[in-house]
Design a protein around this nucleic acid. Structure first.
Lengths: 194, 194
DNA sequence: CGCTACATGTAAGGTGTTACATGATTCC
DNA sequence: GGAATCATGTAACACCTTACATGTAGCG
């Protein structure tokens, strides 16, 4: 069951503008980074296959060995086909959740550290989203794609904000856990909450 | 760079209670399903390796060929080690976002259908979470793990609710897009919104 | 001239799924 | 007795990353 997802990502990126393989990887990392990823080991073989199928053409730029890849008409048709195929996401694998689910063996403090780290990452990401949003908005008038790009950006913002809200909630829950554990006699009146 | 994540998931699941390989897969699918997954092709070889390392013991149940696997003391130590390792999540690959990013080539209607489908799925998931929450709460008094389980459940609820909120927002954005496209003269007063 | 970034590619190896094969048990 | 479920396993294959190899171009 071939998924051809790399093909779709490459054709899609080239539909925005022609690029070299190197630039393609940079674009996928920097622009689609929140929801997609491809490595060189995928990109170059895929490009060669696409050229052989005539979905993409290679334009040697000046004298160097470097070539830009451009989407052809059949390539655009193929892209539409691939995008219309049913979505088949890889099975979920969230290392943070796995650790928290078995968090009793890890200890409340280690769990809190993991969550705090996640929250900090999420806050950084949120700031990055703002920068991307500004970028898209400045080119919005001349770019037909911008409404769709804002859609995916908004999804990232929503889920990231939800993650931060969850982290705050989780941190207070774990704080309660630690305090009740260090004071194993909940009915005791003498032990003050530190 | 071995990740041993399957090992951690299997040891973790067995730390809750002894099981057969088959039950292990069911438990991982049904209980960790929102954030984890393992297939038979992973579980059985991993179990054999764990037995060889003495991290898990095999208890033949009565006469059948079926055996339950039980976590040993060294196995518990190993589980703690694995959980303490740094998190290395697989690179993101979100098929829905890929399609929406290049949504111009797919068309607004197809995009709306994808989002509506996602929203419906998310709403179903949310109902499922409620059932799981009830299950956990009923056994909360006798189960030391329940606070941690509620943590991961809450994460699922937060992100799922965020997804639904995003979907609603996205659907209205796309509705605007369709109407402005089908009515290329925005200043026209005669064309009624269908 | 050396460092960094740009650029192209390959080979090895790990990870994980799918499909298949096989058989016992349970329930109707 | 037949169907569904429980149960164990393997082999082929798809997918993808990492590390390596190689070379150019621009800049201080």
């Amino acid at each position: 069951m071939r998924r051809n997802q790399t093909e779709a990502a490459v054709l899609g990126a080239l539909s925005v503008q022609p690029m070299t393989g190197y630039a393609l990887r940079e674009a996928i990392r920097d622009v689609l980074g929140h929801f997609w990823s491809e490595s060189f080991g995928q990109i170059y073989p895929t490009l060669r296959a696409l050229v052989q199928q005539g979905l993409v053409t290679q334009i040697p730029s000046s004298s160097n060995g470097r070539t830009s890849f451009t989407l052809t008409e059949p390539g655009l048709v193929r892209l539409r086909e691939l995008l219309a195929e049913s979505i088949q996401d890889p099975p979920p694998r969230n290392g943070l959740m796995l650790r928290l689910y078995f968090g009793r063996h890890l200890g409340p403090d280690a769990c809190r550290a993991l969550i705090a780290q996640t929250k900090a990452q999420a806050e950084g990401q949120l700031a990055g989203y703002q920068a991307i949003r500004d970028d898209i908005l400045t080119m919005a008038d001349s770019n037909q794609d911008s409404p769709y790009w804002l859609l995916t950006l908004s999804a990232g913002e929503h889920t990231t904000r939800a993650l931060i809200a969850w982290a705050d909630e989780a941190l207070t829950c774990l704080a309660d856990l630690t305090s009740t554990e260090s004071a194993p006699t909940p009915t005791s009146l003498e032990t003050p909450p530190n």
